[in-house]
Design a protein around this nucleic acid. Structure first.
Length: 213
DNA sequence: ATATCGATTATCT
DNA sequence: GATAATCGATATG
């Protein structure tokens, strides 16, 4: 299934700028141990992320300063920041930088690898054709629903521990060509190019990249 | 194919 | 009271 066994990423991996963490997260694997006995863990390869820079980034939740909601972003690196948005969806980030300095990376899309049936059940979709795979983890709200990620369960959990119930692994997969574009779904600082994605991967969210005139 | 809009709630002004 | 790091449904070319 994987080129190499999955090894959790180190704390030091996340103790860097969100830009570098975001770029290096492409190709890594998000892991949710299955809650159903004897069934496959939920795993997906990271194919699209966005960097959020901290208090000086108007689009970042940290821009408002330290609040109860965003406190994970100001804590140590490698922890899950999960928030609820539009009354409907959760989004998953991982904290970066160091304690006291906010920064994070938003997971925008995964390529599902294992546990697809359980993901489909959580998403309420039927897997009839190849195209249905795109409904599982393409988009930040969708991937959270597929992995049953909620604020109550997952906000503040350590993503560097393979004994935790959500973590990020490295199987030494080589990421392909990386594209950098402006972030999407935001209104502030929408011009900054802080979205990183694997070129040509069909699980990347958003409109297809066309040559703009 | 792209465009617009409603859902539904935590958070902040 | 307004807004939001979204999604899915509906409308229209």
């Amino acid at each position: 299934m994987y080129p190499e066994p999955l090894k959790p990423l180190s704390r030091a991996f996340f103790a860097r700028s969100p830009r570098r963490v975001a770029r290096d997260l492409l190709g890594k694997v998000l892991v949710r141990p299955s809650k159903i006995p004897n069934s496959a863990d939920l795993t997906g390869r990271v194919v699209e992320v966005e960097a959020y820079l901290g208090e000086r980034d108007p689009a970042a939740h940290a821009a408002a300063g330290h609040t109860r909601r965003n406190s994970v972003l100001f804590g140590p690196p490698g922890y899950a920041y999960v928030y609820f948005i539009y009354g409907n969806h959760y989004c998953l980030n991982v904290s970066c930088e160091r304690e006291g300095r906010a920064g994070g990376v938003l997971f925008r899309a995964l390529e599902p690898l294992s546990g697809l049936e359980e993901m489909a059940a959580s998403r309420g979709v039927e897997l009839r054709s190849e195209k249905d795979l795109l409904k599982l983890t393409r988009g930040p709200g969708r991937l959270c629903e597929a992995f049953s990620i909620t604020r109550n369960r997952d906000n503040g959990s350590d993503l560097t521990s393979s004994s935790g119930n959500l973590w990020i692994g490295d199987d030494e997969h080589r990421a392909g060509r990386i594209l950098v574009t402006p972030r999407i779904g935001i209104t502030k600082a929408a011009d900054k190019s802080l979205r990183y994605l694997l070129s040509g991967n069909r699980f990347v969210s958003g409109p297809k990249l066309l040559s703009r005139v």
